[in-house]
Amino acid sequence: MEPIRKHTGLVYPLNRANVDTDQIIPKQFLKRISRQGFGQFVFYNWRFDSKGTLRDDFSLNQPKYEGTSILVAGENFGCGSSREHAPWALLDYGFRVVIAPSYADIFYNNCTKNGILPVILSDDEVQTLIKNAETEQYYLTVDLEAKKVYDNKGFEATFDLDSYKREMLLNGWDDIAVTLTHVDKIDQFEANRK
């Protein structure tokens, strides 16, 4: 996966809690057998009407959010199905960072396996970012090395991420390769069980 160290981008605010992975990528798009090409279907049922036409009333379709790469949303983001097609779709659409007060465990994990940085900020901080991004074209910088989120007008917040996931994201490592450096221990574990 592509490493992520420091990222500056346009913020898209999605002021909803409990956004589930069925909304991020509906099931009719899970039949593909590759990891690519899911971006066109992200938030499909919110972005398109039943005839497949873009809906003006869904904010992601507004021109002011074109080119967005940082998604800010409400609590428990990514709940429900374990489908990794959700982070694949977000990444393919252009999102490199998600910011929310909390995430569902599986989705959070899936993000870190695909080079999407899931940032946890407080409710108040998230609401501030959402308001800013609803009122103007709003850019943020997310610095994974310093574990900081800031804009150029004085907003600054710190976040935490476990050191293993941080290292993987910073370096873009494939964790199977890392695990295989412990293969002797796996062999030993299996031998001890027999």
């Binding site: 599986i106 994990n109 899936n110 396996k113 695909n114 476990d162 199977i176 695990t179």
Partner: peptide, 20 residues
């Protein structure tokens, strides 16, 4: 517990998973 596809690949290859 449920896992994503990257972890499916990881378990197929190593029969293990990284878990806190």
């Amino acid at each position: 517990f449920g896992i994503g596809t990257s972890e499916v690949e990881h378990v197929l290859a190593t029969q293990t998973i990284w878990q806190a």
